[in-house]
């Protein structure tokens, strides 16, 4: 429904959790490949399968990052607080329309269904970013419209909305192979060119999604990377570590695809912990893919018992590696 509404030009989102996304994953590929804006809000719960339906996790990271058969990549937002969820609402729609693609917002059961304290939300001032939409007048002005042509070199084509009366406006949207003019095509060159353009589009998005937030500490040689609700106990954990003489820098990821800020952070530290709430070090896996050969620097701290992660877990994990004892 969201994909149909997005195609027709409305800002549309749905909220679900892991099993709902598994069930409807075919639409993720359609949104990516047919380039239809859509937003899916994932309140992550414990999987796999029915798992622990009332417990929390960050176990959907690698699933949503590349969800669908075939080569696919999605924009993913990683809010850490209720206030950030509020701001993510507009950001997710802006990115979905700017990049004409599916945007996942990864919340979790802890953040999405528990009560949290928050400062009052600030009113969002920035105007909506509706992306490259051509109305009849705009087509007349540019003279030519092809739905999947990379006119600007950033991988992002122009689109028209159903109901546009210009004779060139209508196109046939499909999940099967298509050329720049949206015509059906099985040509090897056309397919590969299109796939390369989609990769270019996601590359453009890399530096346009919310950047990681760095919280530095004087003299730190140890880095910690985390995201989402791991942020809540992080301040307390770093205070505990600091009291024990372990200074840490903290990089909080706010979106996928990852960009070079992550690589630079890892390069700038002797040792980097990646804190996440799943068994398989899903985010660390994505970091290794993006940042190259950094595996020797990374230690994963993985919390996956279904309960919210806590400061003691993080502090103990770090000290176990660096050989300091944390006093409570």
């Amino acid at each position: 429904m969201v994909v149909g509404a997005g195609w027709a030009g409305a800002r549309a989102m749905t909220s679900t959790s892991g099993p709902g996304i598994s069930l409807m994953s075919e639409f993720a590929g359609l949104s990516y490949y047919a380039e239809v804006p859509a937003v899916i809000w994932d309140i992550q719960r414990v999987g796999p399968s029915t798992g622990l339906p009332t417990r929390t996790a960050q176990g959907d990271v690698s699933m949503v990052a590349n969800l669908s058969h075939g080569d696919t990549e999605h924009i993913v937002l990683l809010p850490a607080t209720v206030e950030e969820c509020f701001r993510c609402g507009q950001e997710a729609f802006d990115l979905a329309e700017e990049f004409q693609t599916l945007v996942f917002v990864l919340s979790d059961l802890d953040l999405g269904m528990n009560q949290w304290m928050s400062d009052p939300f600030e009113f969002a001032e920035p105007p909506y970013r509706r992306g490259k939409v051509l109305d009849a007048e705009a087509i007349e002005k540019v003279g030519k419209f092809e739905r999947y042509r990379d006119v600007d070199g950033d991988g992002v084509p122009y689109r028209t909305l159903p109901g546009n009366p210009h004779p060139q406006a209508a196109y046939f949207c499909r999940g099967s192979g298509h050329d720049e003019a949206a015509a059906y095509s099985e040509s090897a060159e056309v397919y590969q060119r299109n796939l390369d353009r989609l990769a270019r589009k996601l590359d453009t998005a890399r530096d346009r999604v919310p950047a990681p937030v760095l919280d530095a500490m004087e003299g730190a040689t140890i880095g910690i990377i985390a995201f989402g609700t791991s942020d809540a106990p992080m301040k307390e954990a770093r205070d505990m570590l600091s009291a024990a003489g372990v200074a840490t820098d903290y990089l909080r990821l706010r979106a996928l695809p990852l960009n070079d800020a992550v690589t630079e952070f890892i390069d700038g530290h002797e040792h980097v912990f990646v804190v996440e709430q799943n068994r398989d070090a899903q985010m660390a896996g994505l970091i290794k893919l993006h940042c190259g050969d950094v595996a020797h620097k990374l230690t994963s701290l993985l919390h996956y018992d279904g309960l919210p992660i806590h400061a003691r877990f993080i502090a103990d994990g770090v000290t176990a590696k660096v050989g300091q004892k944390v006093e409570v």
Binding site: G4, A5, A8, A12, F27, P162, G163, F172, C173
Partner: peptide
């Protein structure tokens, strides 16, 4: 041939159509 078209997902055209209708009931 001059109309917009959407060849969607197996068995789930009704959902796409519902979204399209709600987004633009003039269509």
């Amino acid at each position: 041939g001059r109309s917009f078209g959407f060849n969607s997902v197996h068995g789930r055209m009704p959902a796409v159509a519902t979204g399209t209708n709600l987004a633009n009931r003039q269509l």
